[in-house]
Structures are given as C-alpha cells and as structure tokens.
Computed example of a mutant assay.
Amino acid sequence: MTGGKRTRPRALYHEPEAVTWARQKAGLTKRALAQTVGISAQLLGEIESGWRNATPANLIKIAEVLNCPVVALERKHAKC
C-alpha cells in the first residue's frame, strides 16, 4: 500500500451483495461463516463490502458452506 490511502479493487471477482444475501439466507453471521470457511471475520466483512477481493479459492469455499453455486456469488441477486 503506497501513500497510506486505501482504494477499492478495480475489478471484483464476486458480487459483494450476493455474498451478503446468500449468507443471510443461510442464517449465518459473518463470524460463523468466516470461521467455517477458515478466514477472518474482518476479511469476510471486507469481501462483503467490496473492499477486498475474494480469492477464487475462498469464493469456492464460501459457496460450498452456503450450499450455493459459485456463479451465483459472481453476480447480483444470487439465487441459492
């Protein structure tokens, strides 16, 4: 990080709102999902807010835990 200013990624591999929607539909908190996936709750929060990209591996893990196809997390208004 240069200059101390944080910027959002130019292109996200996932749709933040879709991840949030699917998590809420599954009845999980951010902390519970993050723990199951093996990432920090802070990272999951940043993924859901669009401040960080979900790596392809993490997106696959998130989709598996949420019983949702990965493609549903890659676009708005996921249907899991």
Rank of each mutant, 00 (worst) to 15 (best):
A41Y: 11
A78E: 06
A32W: 08
L43G: 00
Q42C: 11
T36P: 02
L28E: 00
A18V: 06
K5L: 07
G50P: 01
L59N: 02
C80L: 14
N67W: 04
Q42E: 09
P69W: 10
A72H: 15
Q42K: 13
G27I: 11
Q24W: 08
A54Q: 11
V71A: 14
V37M: 06
A57L: 08
C80Q: 00
G27R: 05
P56T: 05
R23I: 08
H14D: 00
L28S: 04
G38L: 14
E48V: 12
L73S: 07
N53Y: 10
L28T: 01
G50D: 06
A11D: 00
Q35L: 14
K30F: 05
W51V: 10
A78M: 14
N58V: 15
L44G: 00
L44K: 01
R8H: 05
L44M: 07
V37T: 02
A72T: 15
W51A: 11
C68S: 11
V65L: 09
P9M: 04
T55Q: 14
P56A: 07
E15K: 02
A11P: 00
V71N: 06
R8S: 04
N58L: 04
R6I: 10
L44A: 01
Q24A: 07
W21A: 14
L66Q: 07
G27T: 03
S49C: 11
K61F: 13
G38K: 12
N53F: 11
V37R: 00
V70H: 03
T2L: 14
R10S: 09
Q42P: 05
L73G: 07
E74T: 11
L33H: 04
N58I: 12
N53E: 10
T36M: 04
T36I: 02
A26L: 12
L73Y: 12
I62E: 10
V65N: 00
K30N: 00
K25T: 15
K5D: 03
T36E: 02
E64I: 07
I39K: 04
T55K: 15
Q24C: 06
G3E: 08
A63C: 08
A63I: 09
Q24Y: 10
G3L: 12
Q24S: 08
Q35A: 15
V19S: 04
V37C: 07
R31K: 11
R75S: 09
L43T: 03
L73M: 12
A34W: 13
G50H: 05
R6C: 03
R8Y: 06
H14Q: 01
T20V: 06
N58F: 12
R52W: 11
H77I: 15
G27S: 08
I62P: 02
R8W: 04
A72V: 14
A54G: 10
G4M: 13
